[in-house]
Design a protein around this nucleic acid. Structure first.
Length: 820
RNA sequence: GCUCGGGUGGCGGAAUGGCAGACGCAGGGGUCUUAAACACCCCAGGGGGAAACCCCGUGCGGGUUCGAGUCCCGCCCUGAGCACCA
């Protein structure tokens, strides 16, 4: 810290911040009437994971920005519900507990206590009476209930398959949690394992998840977040083409392609090594080689398979299929660059138009044919070879093909495939079903009981929650089996259906399931007989404003939307999108890197708050730069906002002086005042807090220059700084003689007519270069401006002996004289 | 490789196509003080000039326009996300 604290004249943050925190609590200032509110506004921010290290500056930045918005909406006359809670289940907490040799159930309460202290101290407008923790049985009872609702509707299923396995965290990961082949959380290389897991059918909702993103009546989200979701959903349009296998009666290989127009150039087929038809299609002579290749590909982990070297290898199966367009026989291969879990697990290789196929064809000396003239190239074997003597491009565009209307090549060929029964147009998504099983301890047990007679039986809803037992040996191992599986006294239970000995599911659910519905719980947190109350939910949801980090663009935010859709379709909610508006805030980094304990660059806010006060620190963070950009944390400018608050304080003190009370406000000040009110409201509503604060600083500078401390004006100044510096504003407001909270006052309005100055400064340009300014009455016309410009010596100099060619007049702003 | 952002003083950053650098930090000079801190006043993009004023200036090269940080085309650098998705 390079700055030094100002002396102790007047404004003492520590004293007044303590005072107002106590008042807010005693008077329940931040607890809206959840049943009676007439203009409800649900102001949500992403609840934190309560780490042992406490909140860092990056967290505080995000919460402050969301809190400023909530406080602003409140002063605009809304009853604002701003809840907070703790996302306390999960691997983070468990790993930390393992590291320090304690039980997470013991650690979490103290971490939560510390977070609560920090969040209270920052002056957030939190409705603490509705705080929740996902680890509370009264909460996760309903997380388990949610699983059962999906199961009931066929949206949860168990599947054995290749999954992402993190060898460090010793658990499976969802696809969203694997980043570039590494564990999103710990960075370890992810392996492939075959395990039985529970999945949610999020892919059934892919089209809706995509369509709603573009529906402004449902969603108004940051562009960057919408884009990330679209990329993740990965919609592509193409065709499924079936290739008949030669000599195998009726056997067809379906492939998916986004380029059906290149069908004529498909010179071989490639299947994923684990494709179910491989064995059947392998000739006797190739079998040994094929089996060897499959074994080798299967042993590869996901890293070298998906993101390792791009060397293409494969083997031929010794069988052939027919290209339906050319009628030519083409060989069938397997190669591990084709993925089983996308499309049909098989491709038609078009080496003339696909880089990967080209590399493969080159390596194995397979034929390469170009069929479509692309930019800079020509088609060596145009479509007319197959379709007669019509040029490929014009053939399809001129509609001479099978008498169809003019269409593009892709559509034309798809139509042809459909007509001939060789395939059909299809849509593919990149999205995978959501794997929710975790072979860990610290989460809600999945509420299933396995019975030899009845199969997988859901735990009856009236027997929820399935309480997570407190065990000491919760360390995960490499077996792929959850720690709970070591406790037969826990998992041995009678089958709910037949009463015979059954076994509980010993996996717990993904933390992202906990957070996929927490926003539904907040307004109803005191009801223990239902997850969310119908009337409360109708009043408060969907969420009016959600602010959070874009790192959750495709995880939490996508899962939450999915869960809401499921509950909507189950008629439990009357909306299918949970967050009306979402804004991604920027990330505060330190020395260019995201703050993390392992990098040793975590900045803790407590010392700054001790030294400068929460209000100064909040204002400083919001003044750093655009809220939605974030930036590198530094503390070199913190004295600026502090001096700013000190000066407001002085004005408040000064305003009680009789001279100030009776002083007339000069026109100049009046205009600045109204301009500022207009500007600040506009900037805050767009989360441009840095420029809102700058505008207030400008107004303050004018007031000081003009020696103006008129109480009404000072009061509005205090109101406008209130969202940023809430304790400070309350104290000033009280000193100005008010007896109720500044947050129950109405945000100052402005008079549009008073935002316009009486006289304006016109920039005068000669041939586009500014040569001076003239000051004119607001309503001055072009003629007046021209006269004034010619009269000005400095400007006139540039006009001497020249002839006017053109005059550009922008009223109130600029006069440009084009001369020559 | 693909998809998005972003390149503006010493620093963070402002600028509906209309006086580039608001606001703040740091810096320089001054007032106050025994001295310092605080506070207050003044200066401050670069270059030239005693000054008036002039020239140059928003990553680079073109273009549109009376006028471009802003719009268009082509590059360079940088941050983030996705990545053998057929």
């Amino acid at each position: 810290m390079t700055d030094t604290q100002p002396d102790d004249s007047g404004y003492h943050p520590q004293t007044i911040e303590t005072k107002w925190r106590e008042r807010w609590k005693d008077r329940r200032t931040n607890e809206p009437d959840l049943d009676g509110a007439e203009r409800p506004f649900y102001n949500l921010m992403m609840f934190p994971y309560p780490s042992a290290e406490g909140l860092h500056v990056g967290n505080l930045f995000a919460f402050t920005g969301a809190d400023v918005f909530g406080r602003f909406k409140r002063m605009q006359g809304f009853q604002v519900f701003e809840p907070i809670g703790f996302d306390a289940f999960g691997i983070h907490s468990e790993n930390f507990a393992l590291k320090v040799g304690k039980h997470p159930a013991q650690l979490i309460p103290s971490n939560i206590a510390n977070f609560t202290r920090q969040l209270t101290r920052m002056g957030g407008m939190f409705a603490w009476e509705h705080v929740l923790s996902t680890t509370d049985p009264t909460y996760y009872k309903w997380t388990q209930w949610l699983f059962l609702q999906l199961l009931k509707r066929g949206l949860a299923y168990k599947k054995k398959g290749a999954v992402n396995w993190c060898p460090n965290d010793k658990t499976v990961l969802s696809n969203e949690q694997v980043v570039g082949g590494h564990c999103e959380r710990c960075g370890a290389l992810v392996e492939q394992r075959v395990l039985e897991q529970w999945y949610f059918r999020i892919t059934d909702f892919a089209d809706r998840l995509l369509a709603n993103l573009d529906d402004p009546t449902r969603m108004d989200w940051s562009d960057t977040t919408v884009l990330a979701q679209k990329n993740w959903l990965g919609r592509s349009e193409g065709a499924e083409v079936r290739f008949a296998v030669t000599g195998a009666d009726g056997v067809e290989i379906p492939v998916y392609t986004t380029r059906p127009d290149t069908l004529f150039g498909a010179t071989f087929l490639v299947l994923a090594p684990e494709h179910p038809l491989v064995s059947q299609l392998t000739s006797a002579s190739e079998r040994a080689q094929v089996e060897a290749y499959r074994a080798q590909a299967g042993a590869k982990d996901l890293v070298s398979r998906k993101v390792g070297d791009k060397e293409k290898t494969g083997v031929a199966l010794g069988s052939v299929a027919t290209n339906p367009a050319t009628g030519q026989p083409i060989p069938i291969w397997i190669a591990d660059y084709v993925l089983m879990d996308y499309g049909t697990g098989a491709i038609m290789a078009v080496p003339g138009h696909d880089e990967r196929d080209f590399a493969f064809a080159t390596r194995y000396a397979l034929p390469i044919v170009r069929v479509v003239a692309e930019a800079g190239g020509t088609a060596e074997a145009p479509l007319h070879e197959a379709f007669g003597d019509v040029d490929s491009g014009t053939m399809v565009h001129s509609g001479q093909f099978d008498g169809m209307a003019p269409l593009d090549a892709k559509t034309a060929i798809t139509r042809w495939l459909e007509a001939k029964g060789h395939g059909k147009g299809t849509v593919q998504y990149r999205l995978y079903d959501w794997c929710i099983s975790r072979q860990r301890y610290w989460g809600p047990p999945i509420p299933i009981i396995y019975c030899d007679a009845c199969g997988a039986v859901p735990v009856p809803e009236d027997q929820l929650p399935v309480v997570l037992p407190e065990i000491d040996d919760f360390r995960p191992d490499d077996s792929g089996i959850s720690p709970l599986a070591r406790h037969s006294e826990w998992y041995h239970v009678p089958c709910p259906t037949c009463g015979k000995q059954g076994r509980r599911e010993t996996d717990v659910s993904d933390t992202f399931l906990d957070s996929a519905w927490y926003y539904l719980r907040y307004p109803s947190s005191e009801f223990n007989d239902r997850p969310f109350d119908a009337a409360r939910t109708r009043k408060w949801l969907p969420v009016n404003s959600y602010i959070g980090g874009n790192e959750h663009a495709v995880l939490h935010l996508l899962y939450s939307r999915f869960i809401t859709m499921v509950l909507h379709d189950a008629k439990m909610l009357d909306f299918d999108e949970p967050f009306r508006t979402f804004r991604a805030h920027g990330l505060i980094v330190k020395d260019g890197a995201k703050m993390s304990k392992s990098k040793g660059n975590v900045v803790v806010p407590d010392d700054y708050i001790d030294k400068w006060g929460a209000d100064t620190f909040r204002t400083y963070l919001m003044f750093l730069g655009p809220f939605q950009d974030g930036g590198d944390f530094r503390d070199s400018g913190i004295s600026g906002p502090r001096r700013f608050l000190d000066k407001i304080w002085d004005l408040v003190t000064l305003s009680s002086h009789p001279d100030c009370r009776d002083a007339e406000i000069r026109r100049e000040v009046l205009v600045k005042w109204h301009q500022t009110k207009k500007k600040v409201a506009e900037e805050i509503s767009h989360l441009r807090y840095n420029t809102a604060i700058a505008a207030l600083m400008e107004l303050l500078n004018v007031l000081r220059e003009q020696n103006c401390a008129e109480p009404g004006l000072v009061g509005e100044m205090v109101q406008m700084i209130a969202p940023f510096a809430p304790h400070f504003a309350e104290e000033c407001w009280e000193r100005l003689g008010h007896t109720t909270s500044v947050f129950d006052s109405q945000w100052p309005g402005f008079d549009e007519a008073l935002t316009v100055e009486d006289s304006v400064v016109i920039a005068v340009q000669v041939n586009g270069k500014t040569r001076g300014t003239v000051t004119l009455p607001r309503d001055a016309g072009e003629g007046d401006a021209l006269k004034a410009a010619q009269a000005d010596a400095a400007i006139g100099k540039h006009l001497e002996g020249k002839e006017f060619r053109k005059v550009i007049w922008v009223p109130g702003r600029l006069l440009n004289l084009v001369v020559g």
